[in-house]
Design a binder for these strands. Structure first.
Lengths: 245, 245
DNA sequence: CGGCAAATTGACTCCACTCAAAGGAGGTGG
DNA sequence: CCACCTCCTTTGAGTGGAGTCAATTTGCCG
């Protein structure tokens, strides 16, 4: 269990600053958005920075007691369910600054699983402390409602009966948008998840994802090398995302 | 526009009680669950009872400013989107005690539409007032988080790549469960929505819904007369819901 | 009764799944 | 360092289930 978690959590003075929300580049996309001054300071005291997760490590599993929510600091995480037949169902992928765990407030027990797809780290917050604090800081309460509302919006809007190409194009556009908002390139990024995971998420067979990708590559819309993907023709991609092939 | 809304909202003394949360049979499924005494009284003051909605009347439309959430008192409502091609996409159906509007907190503007499918009525609550009050009543804040979390859970879990029969069976079971919790029969209820709406919601063609229904009727699993449906063999229905046909 | 919309039924098509096999990438141990 | 193994990905061929188109029946409301 030897790892440099301590170094990350409590860096040793000089040069490297302590990682606080106020210094975090993701703060404005994350929980403390619209918080400042004393409010931000109080909020920061609730944050516990965990040691990095290795690929395959779980943040939580279905059945675990719900106590905390997690703000993703780095890496890519996957939420999934195991259905009554033992089949895995990918719910969503999560990128830095996104917050996971809200689906477990109701019932007090996690219903989904969350696993790291690559090396990544999260900030951990006891939900009871966050909600207590929210009663004293309206902006924080608003922020919590806003995040959950946003999640509901996303889930409601995703529902849609599209063809395979359209679904995949929408998926790429979603990733592109989210990456670029976080300061990464909108046109070249890493697909941290396997084709199988993508397929499962999009409710397609993994072979179909391969074929879609092949079609898009042959038309010069995207290029791939290993897990890297480039969007060479975002306009064409957008057309597919809108009106199918 | 002549209707007896007034009678429903402000009944005239004798016999019929004023409709307050404390006297509402749906209270424990609705927003004021776990509230009592003075807290419940303060909460009730925020509630505004609207006049009944006629079929086809909108509670809100996409683009409307978001100010209030609605607790459904009676009737069946439908949430839907209009996509970029002008196609309607049914998000969900809502039964009494369910609360709609949470998806509009983020952005402050409604993204979905909500329409009455039959005669029904709702309680209206200004969200800003509710959230202000929630800061003083922890149980109310918890309740709000709980309801939104529950909604997220439901939306996450529904995602699934099933066959037509399985999807329809799951739909019937969901309605059955919800109706029975509300004191209605679990085995006989009204499908307030059209076949087209059901099909749209389940992401099927309406013809497919007809065929599924035909198959189930011919096997004695359900019976229909007009919009009424009876579940004659819930066990068989459950098998279909679990493992497909 | 008449007219219109919703629901059903039938015939045909097509897209995505399944099954199957080959090609690559990464990891392990000798 | 290479051989081997395994898992992931890609590619191909054939099938099936749901969609589409079209015609008919049923129910609804004036």
């Amino acid at each position: 269990m030897k790892c440099d978690a301590k170094v990350l959590s409590f860096p040793v003075g000089q040069g490297m600053a302590r990682l606080t929300c106020s210094r975090c580049s993701l703060a404005e996309l994350c929980l403390p958005d619209h918080l400042a001054g004393a409010d931000l300071a109080r909020m920061e005291q609730l944050v516990e920075r965990s040691k990095p997760n290795r690929p395959g490590q779980h943040l939580y599993r279905a059945g675990d007691a719900f106590n905390e929510i997690f703000a993703i600091r780095s890496g890519c995480y996957k939420s999934y369910l195991i259905d009554e037949n033992g089949e895995e169902k990918v719910i969503d992928f999560h990128l830095p600054s996104e917050i996971v765990g809200f689906d477990a407030i109701h019932g007090g027990v996690h219903v989904s699983n969350c696993i790291a797809l690559d090396i990544g780290s999260v900030c951990t917050l006891k939900f009871s402390e966050v909600s207590d604090l929210a009663r004293h800081i309206p902006a924080l309460q608003n922020r919590l409602f806003d995040i959950m509302s946003h999640r509901i919006q996303d889930l409601e809007i995703v529902r849609g009966n599209h063809g395979a190409d359209q679904r995949f194009a929408l998926f790429l556009e979603s990733l592109s948008r989210r990456y670029s908002r976080r300061g990464y390139s909108a046109h070249e990024f890493t697909l941290a998840m396997s084709r199988k995971d993508i397929a499962n998420y999009l409710q397609l067979a993994s072979e179909t994802v391969s074929r879609v990708l092949h079609r898009m590559k042959s038309q010069g819309i995207v290029a791939t090398r290993r897990k890297q993907i480039q969007l060479l023709n975002p306009e064409a991609l957008h057309l597919i995302a809108m009106h199918g092939w």
